[in-house]
Amino acid sequence: MKSEAEFRSELRKWIVNKNGKIKAEDLKDDTAIIEQRIISSLQLMDLILELEKLSEEALDVEQLKPGVFKNIDSICHNFYKGESNA
């Protein structure tokens, strides 16, 4: 299981690559990625797939609540499950 720092770092790298314009240093943890259209509606579907990969867990799209993709902080809060003790 990834550490939270690794989770954030991989997520940030993915968003930067997907967007193609924003620099990693400009993408803060509280940068509004949907509001500022850093991630488009089509890319949101890819983001969900990426989060399934990162969190090693299938996501039920129907259960997703408004605001969960607001920024890197909210994504971590909602999808990072913590380091496993196993």
């Binding site: 949907i34 509001e35 509606s41 089509l42 949101l44 579907m45 799209v61 997703l64 609540k65 408004p66 605001g67 969960v68 993709f69 607001k70």
Partner: peptide, 11 residues
């Protein structure tokens, strides 16, 4: 439609 999902998640 991803636009629907986006509207639902980011009203």
């Amino acid at each position: 439609n991803p636009k629907y999902l986006l509207q639902k998640l980011e009203p």
